[in-house]
Design a protein around this nucleic acid. Structure first.
Length: 213
DNA sequence: CATCCGATTGACT
DNA sequence: GTCAATCGGATGA
């Protein structure tokens, strides 16, 4: 028989650990987004770690600003940022508080509420593409800047929650360089994914943008 | 101010 | 494979 995923919330202590410990441990966990149109649940299959003070790839590398303020706050909260003038991406803040480390949620498998996710992801050619990529994941779950700072470990009626799920065994976890990260930030192999999972996004090296003429 | 460019995606050759 | 879209954060004059 197949064990059903554990639907109890992850405790805040889970996130109050170094980000390189938390990131691989998030694979297989379940993110639940509650909307007026019903719940959407996603099983995490790909994440990236960003370690504020040591990490040139992190938004927090150059210190605290209005944008990255949530990263400097308590673990277990959601950091949402806007990028390329079009997209949102979401992170979960890790400990210790003030270190400004976070895990970017890059991809997952929609396990509940796919009908709703499809209405926001009209370009997806199949359900495996619904959340294949960080901005796609945020779009599928209807996450935008309104949810920045949300506590994903809170009890009660919350818009976003992270559940225990079924952690992925260590021998199924792969890691490699982070996707699209420029310069010295690209050296760290801090992208983690589930081996052979069809919802994991393709790796892309950083490409500097050409200047507009 | 002005400029650069991004933790991306989708459309197109 | 190439490249435009589109906006705002970060930086520097």
């Amino acid at each position: 028989m197949i064990a059903s995923p554990d639907r109890t919330p992850l405790p805040r202590d889970f996130f109050d650990r170094p980000v390189l410990e938390v990131a691989p441990d998030l694979l297989g966990r379940i993110l639940v987004r509650t909307t007026p149109d019903g719940p959407i649940a996603l099983r995490l299959t790909e994440v990236e770690a960003y370690d504020g003070p040591n990490d040139p790839g992190s938004h927090a590398y150059r210190g605290r600003t209005a944008r990255n303020d949530v990263m400097f706050g308590p673990p277990g909260h959601v950091y949402v940022y806007f990028t390329y003038g079009m997209w949102f991406c979401m992170n979960l803040v890790c400990g210790p508080e003030g270190r400004a480390s976070a895990v970017l949620l890059r991809a997952g498998e929609i396990i509940e509420g796919a009908e709703q996710a499809r209405t926001r992801r009209l370009s997806a050619r199949n359900d495996k593409e619904l959340a294949k990529g960080p901005a796609r994941l945020a779009t599928a779950l209807d996450v935008d800047r309104v949810l920045n700072g949300t506590d994903a470990c809170a009890s009660g009626d919350t818009p976003l929650r992270i559940l225990t799920g079924t952690p992925v065994p260590a021998d199924q976890v792969r890691n490699g360089p982070r996707t699209g990260v420029a310069g010295d930030g690209g050296v760290h192999p801090w992208r983690y994914w589930v081996a052979d999972d069809p919802t994991v996004s393709p790796y892309r090296a950083h490409v500097p943008r050409r200047r507009r003429g």
